[in-house]
Design a protein around this nucleic acid. Structure first.
Length: 260
DNA sequence: ATGTCACGCTGGGCGTGA
């Protein structure tokens, strides 16, 4: 199974690049985040024209997650929303079963600043996620992929000295993400690319991409039922190209998974 | 650290979130 996770920062603004991604990488499932669209105007027809379809959990202007699969695959037992999440109206979690694998697309709250109330909600969201993954991880093949808004290690940011008192690198956030890994899940990219940078996000401002000021905050976490055969971040999608159009501030994470 | 983006509301800039 080839799985891609991508925070698109609006599926409507990014539609040409999403179609390019599907054509170029022919994924079996795509976990999208920040679709920023209501269900009424989600671009189902455009996906259908290229042989894919989506199940989505949409809020409207903010957030929004989806699973996209080719026509020859089904998405079974779709569940939108995370039991116990702090703000259920925010569309941040969708799961479904694809080719026998439970797949979750997640968009963890940003958290703003460590002293902001939304930071505490971010931690509670991750705790709720642990509760749900505890149920799923022992049940069978599982992958949760998405934007976790946490850099797991110091090397997962471009310069840890620039992150003093900053969100995304605090022990609280890292601890909640480690709690997920402690369920027996594998950080797929790190498992097969132990020495590579793997940044997935660069701020739009300050020429951050050009300067290499990135962070690894998007992950695919896999259960022991799956072997990670390969992983990559396709940074070409962080650049403009002949499809014109502005890039997302995230690049897609691509993983190849095989049943053990 | 902040040189940008995308949204809705509205009819061109502003407020919000990242």
């Amino acid at each position: 199974m080839r799985l891609i996770s991508w925070n698109v920062n609006s599926i409507r603004a990014r539609l040409p690049r999403v179609l390019e991604l599907l054509a170029q990488h022919t994924p079996d499932v795509v976990c999208l985040q920040e679709t920023k669209v209501s269900d009424e105007v989600f671009p189902h027809a455009a996906l259908s024209e290229v042989g894919y379809r989506a199940v989505e959990h949409s809020e409207g202007r903010w957030n929004g997650v989806a699973l996209v699969v080719p026509d020859h695959l089904e998405v079974e037992d779709v569940q939108a929303g995370l039991p116990g999440e702090p703000e259920p109206a925010e569309a941040r979690w969708i799961e479904g079963t694809v080719a026998g694998v439970r797949v979750v697309s997640v968009y963890v709250p940003n958290g703003r600043e460590p002293d902001h109330p939304m930071f505490a909600a971010k931690l509670r969201f991750l705790e709720a996620g642990r509760g749900r993954l505890l149920e799923l991880a022992s049940a069978g093949p599982l992958v949760i992929a998405g934007d976790f808004n946490v850099a797991l290690e110091d090397r997962d940011v471009w310069d840890i000295a620039a992150f003093e008192d900053a969100t995304h690198v605090t022990p609280d956030e890292r601890g909640r993400l480690l709690d997920l890994l402690d369920l027996g899940l594998t950080d797929a990219f790190r498992a097969v690319r132990p020495d590579d940078q793997g940044f997935t996000w660069w701020d739009y401002r300050m020429g951050a991409f050009r300067r290499g000021w990135g962070m690894r905050i998007d992950y695919a976490l896999t259960s022991r039922h799956l072997e990670v055969a390969a992983a990559d971040v396709d940074t070409t999608f962080r650049r403009n190209n002949e499809h014109g159009d502005k890039p997302s501030d995230h690049a897609p994470l691509i993983v190849e998974l095989q049943p053990v």
